[in-house]
């Protein structure tokens, strides 16, 4: 199983591009004005980020005080699932998914499902913070009540103690804002339905989106069920429109879900069609 980004066939891309142009309503011309490219932008030039913390401030850098505080919190709570050494081998970890996915993440492996960076890359600090803040529906509680400083502290400790590499501060993935022509429309969802089949999403998630495949395994060779796209409560990476967009672009490293950033490169706004199709499956 290829866990890296997947490129769709060139011919399919042509069909896709043609179909998009045939149904376009001038969105591509506006794209430069409504996209956010984090790569290479300085803090002062930054446009509003989807991934900015709740309070809108730029993420603080890691400092020793934060790491110390993070260690204290981690050793009171997080280690129960993620293990004292960040190996995902905490005493409660096996009971979450005894013989099947999910299991608590092994921070030391460098494989992270929930990122805003390219497939195969480490997450940004704010990605770790988002997961701590939001939790993972069904498996990991929200630690929102730690406050942004507490969340930052835990993320800092994980980065410093277990990942032990410099985390990226930017990504090459373009995040098109969910505004103006990119908001939901029936036409967009219809286009998304075509994309859903062209990009072979149906092979794992099923034609009806309910997750048909039963033979998939994750990188630990553990049985994994494709998400039932008709039930938003099963979306581990978040249920907001932006969360679904990000999941499509980045994929979920360590699982069979590839990132489609390369497939959408230059046509990132089309990913919203796919998002809208998924939303339509949920009646949203």
């Amino acid at each position: 199983m290829n866990f890296k980004s997947k490129k769709i066939d060139y011919s399919l891309a042509l069909i896709l591009t043609a179909s998009i142009f045939m149904t376009t309503d001038g969105r591509t011309q506006e794209m430069d004005h409504s996209t956010m490219e984090e790569h290479g932008s300085s803090p002062s030039e930054k446009k509003p980020l989807m991934e900015t913390p709740v309070n809108g401030e730029v993420v603080k850098p890691i400092d020793d005080m934060a790491v110390m505080r993070g260690e204290m919190i981690y050793k009171m709570s997080c280690f129960l699932c993620h293990g004292k050494n960040g190996e995902g081998d905490g005493p409660a970890s096996r009971f979450i998914g005894p013989y099947s996915h999910p299991r608590p993440n092994r921070f030391t492996s460098g494989v992270f499902k929930f990122r805003s960076t390219e497939s195969g890359e480490l997450p940004m600090l704010k990605d770790l913070m988002r997961t701590i803040r939001e939790g993972i529906p069904g498996y990991m509680p929200s630690f929102r009540n730690l406050g942004e400083d507490g969340i930052h502290a835990v993320a800092s400790y994980i980065a410093k103690a277990f990942i032990r590499e410099e985390l990226p501060t930017s990504t090459t993935i373009k995040y098109v804002k969910h505004v103006g022509p990119y908001t939901y429309s029936a036409k967009s969802a219809w286009r998304g339905g075509i994309l859903y089949n062209i990009m072979k999403c149906n092979e794992c998630h099923g034609a009806d989106g309910k997750g048909g495949r039963t033979d998939l395994k994750d990188e630990r060779k553990i049985l994994i069920h494709p998400v039932d796209l008709t039930r938003q409560e099963t979306f581990g990476n978040g249920t907001r429109h932006e969360d679904i967009y990000r999941t499509i672009m980045t994929g979920l490293d360590g699982t069979p879900m590839p990132g489609y950033n390369d497939a959408f490169r230059g046509e990132e706004d089309s990913a919203w069609d796919l998002v809208h199709f998924i939303l339509s499956l949920q009646g949203r």
């Binding site: 919190i73 009171m76 709570s77 129960l80 699932c81 905490g90 005493p91 409660a92 009971f95 509680p141 929200s142 630690f143 929102r144 009540n145 730690l146 507490g150």
Partner: peptide, 24 residues
């Protein structure tokens, strides 16, 4: 209970260090 449940229970039905973890 597993280890996480025991910690939750000992903390007074709250996730340790969060007081009331899901204020939403």
């Amino acid at each position: 209970l597993n280890a996480f449940g025991e910690a939750f229970h000992m903390a007074g039905y709250q996730i340790p260090q969060t007081q009331e973890g899901e204020l939403r």
